[in-house]
């Protein structure tokens, strides 16, 4: 049977509670970045904020946070985590509903790899650049599925009809159905090309666990 990938919002709506239970802790590369940050010109915008675990770190540090996600059920979970002073809204990374230059910093953690069309991935990076105030920084990460061990561990398999870098990664919810998540294989070089192509400057890039991470700067 050919699996059918769906809109990431629908995917994550269908697994939100179980997904949240496995994603309670913020990633240390995000925490370290937020903790080392000086005063900002605008809020920290978390694109694809999911259950709000990273937004919560920013809020605990006294920063103003804004979370955007396609999954309304993950946003409902995020609401419990970050409280009512932090604004959350349903939005698409490819067309952010945020004014130009309005963000002091942007997080786009584990989000770009869920966009199937090449043009959409470019749009998402251009949007990070557009909303960032000049001089602002962003952290962008993708799952390192180009590493065969990571791909094997994730049970990733090529999507039928894809170009080989279009993968399906099953989510097995305890007691629930298995849901395929769409994941694009993005190497560190491809990530850098995407970011530079979108007008961002790569300050530093590294691997953290099973993720490729880049710290970028808006000129």
């Amino acid at each position: 049977m050919t699996p059918t990938p769906v809109n990431p919002g629908d995917t994550f709506d269908s697994i939100a509670e179980a997904f949240d239970a496995t994603r309670a802790r913020p990633w240390s590369f995000v925490t370290d970045w937020l903790e080392g940050m000086g005063p900002l010109e605008g809020p920290v915008v978390d694109v694809g904020c999911g259950n709000g675990r990273h937004l919560a770190v920013a809020v605990q540090r006294g920063m103003r946070g804004i979370g955007v996600d396609l999954s309304v059920r993950l946003l409902a979970i995020a609401r419990q985590r970050v409280g009512r002073d932090t604004d959350l809204f349903i939005g698409d990374a490819r067309d952010l509903p945020i004014a130009t230059d309005a963000a002091g910093a942007v997080l786009a953690v584990a989000v770009i790899h869920h966009i199937q069309e090449a043009e959409g991935r470019k749009d998402a990076v251009s949007e990070v650049r557009r909303v960032l105030a000049p001089g602002g920084e962003a952290v962008v990460s993708v799952w390192a599925l180009d590493d065969p061990d990571v791909a094997l561990g994730a049970h990733a398999r090529p999507m039928e009809g894809g170009d080989g870098a279009d993968m399906l990664v099953p989510w097995r919810a305890p007691g629930g159905p298995t849901v395929d998540r769409y994941l694009r294989v993005i190497s560190p070089g491809e990530l850098a090309d995407l970011l530079v192509g979108g007008g961002l400057e790569v300050v530093r890039s590294w691997d953290a666990g099973a993720n490729h991470v880049a710290l970028v700067h808006a000129p």
Binding site: F89, I90, D95
Partner: peptide, 23 residues
């Protein structure tokens, strides 16, 4: 026009037709 429900604005672009390309 974008709706606000339960305090959360839905600011997806109209149609979001591109999502159907994912199928």
């Amino acid at each position: 026009v974008y709706d606000i429900l339960d305090g959360i604005p839905d600011l997806r672009p109209p149609g979001d037709d591109r999502d159907r390309d994912l199928v």
